[in-house]
Design a protein around this nucleic acid. Structure first.
Lengths: 237, 237
DNA sequence: CGACCGGATTGATCCGGGTCAAGGCCAGAT
DNA sequence: ATCTGGCCTTGACCCGGATCAATCCGGTCG
C-alpha cells in the first residue's frame, strides 16, 4: 500500500528528519510502502537479510531476540517516530532483532538500496542516518548501564519517570502497553514488576490497572539515580 | 606522535578496512597521530564532544560509564583492531562512554572532520564506517540479551568460551586481563566471579591464577546456551 | 448469562548473587 | 628479608528477584 499524505506528514515530524527540506524527505520515502500490522504480526525477523529500513507511523512494536533456550529478551519498544534497521540496511547486514507488532500499527518500509542511494547522493541524508544510528547506540548503552548498575526497583522507577511528561511535580499517566511487556523490557518477571509497583506506593506512586499517579517525579528520579543501597532505604516506609 | 609504519600495517589488517586499497587507507589515516597510553590514562571522556575517532593499535582499554551514584559499568574491552566513537564522531555528537587504558596501549587518533570528509568523498569508506558501527550495535544487542536472559554463571561460561581459540575440544588459555575487570564486564562482583569459576570446576574448567584449562569447550557453550535452570543442573557435581 | 481465558496480583519458598569480613598470595618497595 | 598494598579467594549472611501456585479480575465468546 502506498503512503497516504498523513504518513508523509508524520514522517516529516520525526526528529531524524528535522531540518531536511520537504523535497528531500519526499524523495527519500518515494518508493516506500505502508504496512498495516495487527498484534503478533512480524515486521522483520532477526537474522534475515536487512533489505529495508522502517519508520513507525503509528502503533506499538516490540524489538526482541530469542536466545537458543527459547526465551525472548525485549530490547526496545517502538512507537510513532521510531526507526528500525538503518545500520543493518546500510551495511548490507541482517536484522539484529525481530520486530513484532503488539498493537495495530502502520509502518513505512523503505527499500535498503534506495536509502543507500539517497545517502550517497545527499550527504545531509547520510548525516541524519548516522545520527539516528548513534541515538540507537546511545539507547543501548544506557540499557547496558542500567542492567549492570541498577536494581529492578530502580529500573521500574526510571521507567515510570521516563513516561512522565514533566521533570518534577505531580502527574498521572496511562501505562503505554501491558505490564508483561514492561516487565520483559526491564529484564524482570511480571510478578517482580507487580511487587516493585507495590513497594513504590511508599514513595507516592499508585498504580491502578493502567492508571498511574506519581506524587513527585523528582523523588522517583532520585531513587533511580542513587546507588542500590540508598534506593532500598528510600522505599522503607 | 605520527604513525610509524607498523601502525599503518596493523590498521590495514583490521576487518573494518579489509578490501580497501592501501592508498585509501593511507589517505584515511594521513592526519592521524599515535597516542601512547599508560594504565589509567584516559583517551576520551563520556559526554565530551566527539572530535575524533580512534583505532587501537595495541594494548587494552576499557570502555565504561559511571552513573550518578559513582559506580562504573564496563561496556566493552578494546584491544588491537578495536575502533571507538565512529558514530559519535560522524554525527557530531559526544562520546557515549569513557575510554581508559588498563595496560600500555598505542592508539591512532583520526580527527572527526577528516573522517567525515573521507566518507563523503569515498562511498566505500562510508560503507565501512557504517559496517563498523553496525558491529558495535550487534555487540551491544548481544550484551543486553545476555544480561536479561543468562545467569551470571552462564555469562562466565560464555566469556571463557569466547576466549577459547577453537569451537570444541580441549584447550588452555591465559585470561586477557585481570579478574576484577572480567567481573565488571560481565556485570558481577569479583567474589561472584571467583565462585562461578569454582562451580565450573565440576564441568572440567580449572582456573589457576590467569591460566585456564577447559576440558570441553562445547560443553561450556552448551551451558551458556541452555536456559538458567538446565545450566544450574549441569554444574551440580 | 455463564464459561472461559489471559493478564495481574499475592503468597510461600528457594536460590543467585551482593555484602561484609577475614585471610592468602604475590609483586614491588624499602 | 620484611613490609605493604592490591588482587583474589573463601566463608557467613542477607536480600532481591525467580519460581511455583492459587486467586482474582476484566473482557470475549459461546
Amino acid at each position: 500500500m502506498t503512503l497516504v499524505p498523513g504518513d508523509l506528514q508524520a514522517i516529516g515530524r520525526i526528529a531524524l528528519f528535522h531540518g531536511l527540506t520537504p523535497q528531500t524527505i519526499a524523495q527519500l520515502v518515494a518508493p516506500a510502502r505502508t504496512l498495516l500490522l495487527r498484534p503478533r504480526d512480524i515486521l522483520a525477523r532477526q537474522g534475515d537479510p536487512a533489505d529495508a529500513f522502517f519508520i513507525v507511523v503509528s502503533g506499538w512494536l516490540k524489538l526482541y531476540r530469542n536466545n537458543s533456550a527459547g526465551e525472548e529478551a525485549v530490547l526496545e519498544m517502538m512507537k510513532e517516530g521510531s526507526t528500525f534497521a538503518e545500520a543493518s540496511a546500510f551495511s548490507g547486514g541482517t536484522y539484529l532483532a525481530t520486530a513484532e507488532a503488539v498493537a495495530d500499527a502502520r509502518v513505512a518500509r523503505v527499500p535498503a538500496e534506495h536509502v543507500v542511494r539517497c545517502a550517497r547522493d545527499n550527504p545531509e541524508v547520510a548525516q541524519r542516518m548516522v545520527s539516528s544510528i548513534s541515538q540507537h547506540m546511545h539507547y543501548l548503552c544506557d540499557q547496558v548501564e542500567r542492567l549492570k548498575a541498577q536494581s529492578g526497583l530502580q529500573r521500574v522507577a526510571e521507567f515510570l519517570a521516563s513516561c512522565a511528561p514533566a521533570d518534577q511535580g505531580r502527574c498521572t499517566l496511562a501505562l503505554p502497553y501491558d505490564k508483561m511487556l514492561i516487565a520483559r523490557q526491564l529484564g524482570l518477571m511480571p510478578e517482580s514488576l507487580s511487587r516493585a509497583f507495590a513497594r513504590l506506593r511508599t514513595v507516592g506512586v499508585t498504580v491502578n490497572a493502567a492508571q498511574v499517579t506519581i506524587e513527585d517525579i523528582g523523588r522517583l528520579r532520585r531513587i533511580a539515580d542513587e546507588d542500590r543501597a540508598s534506593a532500598r532505604g528510600a522505599v522503607r516506609q
